[in-house]
């Protein structure tokens, strides 16, 4: 009685109805979001920038004409002048006597590594704390959230500076420092998102089906809460790259001064801003464009995941 007697429908009508029936393949929410992303021009621009950045970082040895951070041409650099464009050096030299183009290409690699590792660190810490707080509730929630409040009350750059100073001049220090500063942001975001999900009927439905609390939190509430966190992570990648530059600028970067890193290149060139502005402008543009790419991507992702834009 529930199967509708639509089989008797005349053929002419069936032809007209076209896709009224269910086709076989389903579209999950993530697939749907991806389809919306593909139709969004700013997402495509963002994705292209990010893709270019990643390609440059990965294939740096193939793209760069020279070995990085070798300072082979230090003798050509004088206190007042840095050689500009020439046949051997597309963009000239940097103040330490390395090829500027090579340094910029390898800088992408350094920025990407630091960006990804620090964001991953922040994300992992934030998800653990956020899940504890949002999933368990009660006193755990109170405890975790007070801790997060304390961490959030310290400006994130200051927090990163102190952590980096404590850990000393190690390459990993800067990543941990930047990541740690992101932990409370992710934790709070995830907890808020989980609390909103926990009030949804499907959680109640899961309880009434006899699912275990752990299963409900881990395989229903958490995955549904991750959307805003992933968007935030994309945006954080952009800020992480800027923060790396800022920390390098403050002298808290990696120990080897010659290692290509956009922020440090900015620092090293600042006293030549008058005579050779391209030395600061080029790494500055690299930082800005990459950050823009991640931001565009993150914002479009937020739009694509927005429940209001769903059918």
């Amino acid at each position: 009685m529930t199967a509708e007697p639509l089989s008797a429908r005349p053929q002419a009508l069936t032809d007209l109805m076209g896709d009224v029936g269910l086709d076989e393949r389903g579209t999950s929410l993530w697939q749907g979001a991806f389809q919306r992303l593909r139709r969004n021009p700013s997402a495509i621009i963002g994705a292209l920038i990010v893709l270019a950045f990643v390609l440059v970082a990965v294939f740096a040895p193939l793209i760069a004409p020279y070995e990085p951070a070798k300072s082979q041409w230090i003798d050509q650099v004088t206190p007042s002048t840095v050689p500009g464009h020439s046949a051997e050096h597309l963009l000239g030299l940097d103040p330490l006597g390395s090829d500027l183009f090579t340094q910029l290409v390898y800088g992408a690699r350094q920025s990407l590594i630091i960006g990804i590792v620090s964001t991953a660190f922040g994300l992992a810490g934030g998800v653990i704390l956020g899940t504890l707080a949002g999933g368990l509730g009660g006193w755990v929630d109170t405890l975790v959230m007070r801790l997060v409040d304390i961490l959030l009350s310290i400006p994130s750059l200051l927090l990163a500076v102190s952590i980096a100073a404590m850990l000393g001049q190690r390459p990993s220090a800067i990543m941990i420092a930047i990541g740690a500063a992101q932990v409370p942001i992710f934790a709070r975001l995830l907890r808020g998102s989980m609390l909103a999900q926990r009030n949804q009927d499907y959680v109640l439905a899961s309880f009434s089906l006899g699912l275990r609390r752990r299963t409900i939190v881990m395989s229903h509430v958490l995955p549904n809460s991750l959307g805003p966190v992933i968007v935030q992570a994309t945006l954080t990648l952009a800020t992480a790259i800027i923060e790396v530059a800022a920390l390098s600028y403050l002298g808290l970067g990696a120990p080897d001064p010659a290692v290509a890193e956009w922020g440090r290149m900015l620092v090293k060139a600042q006293d030549r801003l008058q005579s050779d502005p391209h030395l600061t402008l080029l790494p500055g543009i690299c930082i800005a464009v990459t950050a823009l790419g991640f931001t565009l991507l993150g914002e479009s992702l937020r739009e694509a995941l927005d429940p209001k834009s769903r059918r």
Partner: peptide, 22 residues
């Protein structure tokens, strides 16, 4: 939890009561 198998529930808003990711 095991007893709930024998007592089930149908909810008002079918979209809200189904996990959108499943």
């Amino acid at each position: 939890r095991l007893m709930r198998r024998r007592m089930q529930m149908v909810f008002q808003d079918p979209l809200a009561s189904l996990d959108p990711r499943q």
